[in-house]
């Protein structure tokens, strides 16, 4: 296990170094930087959601609540002017974890469909609290006036290149951490609960506690995604916590695949490129995205990477 950890970290460091070298070598363009920031943001959202969907078997339709919570709590803390960025990030993650703990405690006992419903309902509740608590959140206009970004440790997030590097760093850090979670005995227990909750309970696992822990971990990482998003747009908006954001995250997971750990990240990249391409071509975004999604779901019945991996395994199996 420690070997895996070391290898993951090494891979992550190499990726980060490559990204930074690429930037420093002058290959950077503002659209590439934008893409890197958005990829890190939505990648975190999708990857953390897959801890629930893929690993634990909990289909949450309310994951954007934590994304929004991270963004708002971070933005509000920064606007007080009294917090440094790292401190505010940690505090925002703590707030998000607390919200996930409360919602999770109410939801994880429920069966599949009730769970999807209720997570959706709590997300809508948060959304309506954000839109109507105008004195705190600015309502639908979002947190206005920009989010101050004081430099720390020589990193100035007001510069897009620094922000992109920071975003990629956060994503890699979280990827390594989440991979550790999935590989640990804790992750194995989650998979057992997913496949057979009764058996898991029978061997003495507290299904409730394990599910709740997974829910809180997933929510916290989604909150980090929200923090990056608020840094990117220099504000926070109620749509961060709207159901469409959750829908998009599920879409990304579906594009990539649930069974491969990095599937959601592949899905995020495909989704973002597809989204940018479609909005550039047509105003009938929903029609195109919806049709592509239907073809994927009904045609492949699984994510792209799932599909490829299965084929690959089947071929390997046939050969040996």
């Amino acid at each position: 296990m420690s070997g895996g950890w070391l290898r993951d970290t090494a891979v992550a460091m190499v990726v980060l170094a490559l990204f930074l070298a690429f930037e420093l070598a002058g290959f950077r363009s503002s659209s590439l930087l934008d893409f890197a920031i958005r990829f890190a943001t939505f990648g975190l959202l999708a990857l953390s959601l897959n801890l629930l969907i893929g690993t634990t078997g909990l289909v949450s339709f309310g994951h954007a609540a934590y994304f929004g919570m991270g963004a708002y709590s971070f933005g509000l803390l920064m606007q007080t002017g009294a917090w440094s960025i790292p401190a505010a990030i940690l505090a925002a993650l703590a707030c998000t974890a607390l919200l996930a703990l409360v919602v999770g405690a109410l939801c994880v006992r429920l069966s599949e469909i009730y769970f999807a419903f209720l997570t959706l309902a709590f997300q809508m509740l948060l959304h309506s609290v954000i839109s109507s608590w105008i004195s705190l959140t600015g309502g639908d206009q979002g947190l206005m006036g920009g989010i101050p970004k004081p430099a720390f440790l020589g990193i100035d997030l007001a510069q897009p290149s620094h922000l992109a590097g920071f975003g990629v760093f956060c994503l890699l850090l979280s990827t390594v951490a989440l991979r550790q979670v999935v590989r640990s005995p804790f992750g194995a227990a989650l998979r057992m609960i997913r496949d057979n909750p009764d058996r898991a309970a029978f061997v003495g696992l507290s299904v409730f506690r394990y599910r709740l822990a997974a829910f809180v971990i997933a929510g916290t990482f989604a909150g980090l995604g929200g923090v990056l998003m608020s840094l990117y747009v220099s504000g926070a908006f109620p749509s961060f916590a709207f159901w469409t954001t959750s829908g998009e995250a599920i879409f990304m997971i579906m594009l990539g695949g649930v069974s491969v750990f990095l599937g959601p990240l592949v899905g995020t990249a495909i989704f973002l490129l597809l989204n940018d391409w479609i909005t550039a071509l047509t105003e009938h975004h929903g029609l195109f995205m919806g049709t592509i999604l239907l073809i994927l779901v009904l045609g492949l019945r699984k994510g792209l990477l799932d599909f490829i991996m299965e084929h690959w395994r089947a071929r390997k199996g046939a050969r040996s």
Binding site: I250, L294, L298, R301
Partner: peptide, 24 residues
């Protein structure tokens, strides 16, 4: 086509239908 598969599939099909009908 997706009876017997998990909720995720239902969710995605319905999500696609919402997107398409709103545009139609």
């Amino acid at each position: 086509r997706i009876y017997g598969q998990d909720v995720l599939m239902q969710l995605l099909v319905c999500y696609a239908v919402i997107l398409i009908l709103d545009d139609v």
